[in-house]
Amino acid sequence: MDLGKTTADTAKATMDTAKAAMPPPPTHTSPDDTYHSSDHEQARKRFRRARKRRHTWISSLCTLLGLVALGTAAVASPGWERVDSLFLDGAEFRAALPDLLRGFWLNIQMFLIAEVLILVLGLLIALIRVTRAPGLQPLRLAATVYVDVFRGVPTLLLVFLVGFGLPALRLQGTPSQPWVLGVIALVLSYAAYVGEVLRAGLNSVHPAQRNAARALGLGERQTLRYVVLPQAVRNVLPPLLNDFIALQKDTALVAVLGPLEALRAAQIKADYDFNYTPYLGAALLFIAVTIPLTRFADRLQRRAAQRTWAETGR
């Protein structure tokens, strides 16, 4: 009996037993219309509802008290008046906002471009690092060195090196706009992180999955493309998003090269007026984008946790 046939047979047998285990849906599989929950269950439900209400009350009260305490402590601090006028100037905020928004648009552009490049480069690095083909040894070595170096160098330092070093080489065709150089530095740095995250994802897929795919006759590449990679990405989506949230903030590091992004715009305005409110405005803009992303990452993480729980809980 050949292997392919046995697999097919077992699959069929499993399907048959599944069918046999669930005989033609009898009327009582669906919730019965005549059912009324018992008094006992209703009392239990009432109790749970009351408890939930109580817990909501307690948590809101604690949150409120905490906020009030924090606020009072801030306002009561000796330097509050100075802080209030230097950081919380409404007029200054309104005046700075258009410039900040214009600058922030550049941050978003840098983020979006860098993100795509990082994904491509990171995936390439991860794939190179997990292959075992002997001919690829030099590439594997290069990828390892790349990750070690670029994960080791502080991102800000890298922005300096690329921003001032690359143009200094005077190579034909090197970009000279500071924001492009900044994006290159960010891509170099983050591709190393993302590559490692993706590699962890690839390694997290159970070997049995690969075997199952190969047993079905899929080639190495097809196995990777249709079976391993989708599961790998699903497994590491939350940490991947985490890296992108960090990237979103780190676009501000490019400010040191001079392009008019949000931080740089805030700096100029703050230096001109001797008021730090624009900084706070820039911070708010970043938060406005990162918080939804963070919540989204949280949700994905919860879903992933539920899924693994469902797999092992049975």
Binding site: S37, S38, H40, E41, R44, F47, R48, R51
Partner: peptide, 16 residues
């Protein structure tokens, strides 16, 4: 979702 389970003297399904 309904009914009770008792172990010895205590009701396991009591939400308390």
């Amino acid at each position: 979702d309904d009914g009770t389970i008792h172990l010895g003297d205590s009701e396991l399904t009591d939400p308390r």
